[in-house]
Nucleic acid binder design. Structure first.
Lengths: 130, 130, 130, 130
DNA sequence: GTGGTCTAGACCACA
DNA sequence: GTGGTCTAGACCACG
């Protein structure tokens, strides 16, 4: 893990990016523990808070999962794989949407934006119906 | 804005929740500026970093948008509404997916999980094709 | 006994709350033994320390009592009810105080605070007289 | 601060007792910070958890107060001093009760036991009335 | 020991 | 002035 403190890319993002790549590349296996916050902080000589912020980002993305008192672990993507029929249906629709967007050049960030917007709109509509 | 420092709900989340509700309720109009980080921090007597963390969360959700040197602003959801044909198509598909999930009782958190998972899978596939 | 590890309510408090309710509801009778630390820990899949902390809390509240080498037992509230004339008098006064506070909307936590403060003040006064 | 690890008195209680005495004796002034958890743990060579348990006990008793991110502080007893009329009334009754108990030789621990028992009984009665 | 939240106060980039 | 990042170091919940 190499960090360039002078880069314009924030340190916490450099960390997150490298871990994300490592997970995608299979360097860390599903359910495997990553280095502890403090251990990684010492190793790359940054403040533990900075590492935490990186882990936070990966947690929100669903790449890793932290278990208090135990450590942080690579999420087994297969475990996410949809139980109920409702979820299967949803997953299929999402896959179609993402594939379409991707094929037509919409960036992931923009897709996330649209997804969140849709979610929010839906929630408000649902709320008002109460 | 009322904060309970002894609550089990983290302060930054209390802040985020209250602002989100205020925005939904129309207390803040689209494109309107929210209180500055430091101003809000003074008002509710917490550290500016804690307020920032709340703003961060809302930013990621697309509720607000911060513009460095200017302040943080309520995002005009209509502005997200999409420009290109590709985005329109994507938006329609996402809406369908979310509506379906919502109707069948899938929680927003779970939908977000599945969406992120789908995104990630798609990106990896796209990457390998390179 | 159902535990939600993702809840914001700490696990040890979830445990304590459920046991307190069970005792109040008469699920466990006075003088009856509760599940052993380790047995309960295994059953609900948490660390024994966590269970210990829950039992600790209930012990301090006087709901249960642990007897070394034997187990933990539901305290028979009638047993507390007082032996000596002095205790009867005290109990009567405390009951009046608590009833008054409760009727006027003082929270239990605040009553405890005032009680402890009173106790402390009294002890110091007694000490100085020595 | 001297700790006797061989004593029958648990270490955390030895710590709590000594700090309580120090506060009563005015060694630490109201609003003054106590040694941090870890600092004290290192100094007297015990596990930080043990110190925390001592601080916990003092916190519940209202002797000290911990402020996240800052440290633990001696509570200014004057600050507790009853605002509302209801609290004044309650405080007066509690003072009478404690003074009576104290005068007739009831121990503080026993008083606390009776107080907690009374509180609990009252709460249950209030709950059932719902 | 682990991760999580918070504070104080620093420096930076931007307007 | 604004927000963004980082450090040092605190307590908190859990194992």
């Amino acid at each position: 893990m190499l960090i360039d403190p002078k880069s314009n890319v924030p340190i916490f993002r450099q960390i997150a990016d490298q871990i994300r790549e490592a997970v995608d590349a299979g360097v860390y296996r599903p359910e495997e523990a990553l280095p502890s916050l403090r251990a990684l902080a010492v190793e790359i000589r940054v403040n533990p808070n900075t590492v935490q912020r990186a882990y936070d980002e990966l947690d929100r993305e669903g790449v890793i999962e932290s278990r208090r008192g135990l450590g942080v672990f690579v999420v087994d993507q297969r475990r996410l794989a949809v139980g109920s029929r409702a979820e299967k249906k949803l997953a299929r629709l999402l896959k179609e949407a993402v594939a379409t967007g991707s094929a037509e050049g919409v960036t992931p960030a923009r897709m996330r934006e649209l997804f969140e917007s849709t979610l929010r709109t839906n929630l408000q509509a649902a709320g008002k119906r109460k």
